[in-house]
Amino acid sequence: MEERSWVEWFEQASTNDWPLDVWLILLHWELFAMGLLNTILLVSLSLFFGGILAVVLALVRTYRLPVLSEFVWLLTYVERGSPLLVQLYLIYYGLSQFVFVRESILWVILGNAWWCALIAFSLNTAAYTSEIIRGGIKSIPRGEIEAAKACGMSVWSQLRSVILPRGFRYALPAYGNEVIFMIHSSAVVSTITVIDILGAGRTLNGKYYVVYEGFLMAALLYIVVIFITTKFMKGWERRWLDFLVR
C-alpha cells in the first residue's frame, strides 16, 4: 500500500468520511480572516462614531434643549423602534432608488456597501447608547450636581468633572450589553454583499452547497469575539466601578 502523509489522509477523510468537512474550512481560512477583520472594523468604528454622537444626543435630551430635544426623541424612537435590517435596507437599497442621490457627491459614500453599513450601524448604536447615557446621568445623586453648582462651577466644568464622568460610570454595565448586541446585529451586513464573519460562512456554504461548515465556523468566531469583548468590558467595569464592588 502506498504511503500517505497525514495531510493527505486528513484531506481525504474530511472530504469523504466526516460529517463535517473541516478541511474545507481550513482551506478557506483567508476568507474567514477577512470576515473577522470586517466585523471587528465595522463594529469598532460604529461604536466610535455612534458613541460620540450618543454623548451629544444624550446631553440634548438631558438639558431639554428646545426643538432639538424633540427631534432627538423622534430619531431615537425611530431607530430603536425598527429592526436594524430594515434601517440598513432603507439606506442601501432605498436611497439608491433616487437618481439625484446617485448623481450627487453623496454617492461616493452611499454607493459603497461598507459605508452604508457604517452609517446605519453608527446611527443605531447612537440611539441606544444615548438613552443609556441619559439613564446614567439621571442616576447621579442630585446632591452631587447641586454641590458642583454651589462650588460655583461653570456648566462646562460641571459636565467635564462631575456629570459626564459620573454618568458614564453608571451607564457602563448597560453599555457593555449594547456592545455585545452590536456585534451580534452586525451579522446583517452579510445581506448587502459585505463579507463579514457570517458573510464568509455564507460564501463558503454557497460555493460548496454545504449545510453546516460555514455557519458553524461563523458561530465559533462570534463566540471568540464575544468572549474577548466580555472580558474587556468586565475589566473596564472593574477599573471604573471599583467603588461599587465590595
Partner: peptide, 15 residues
C-alpha cells in the same frame, strides 16, 4: 455576492 437575483439587478441599476 447577493441573496437574490433581484438584489443583483437593483445594484446593477444603482451602479
Amino acid at each position: 455576492l447577493y441573496g437574490t437575483q433581484e438584489e443583483v439587478f437593483l445594484d446593477l441599476a444603482a451602479g
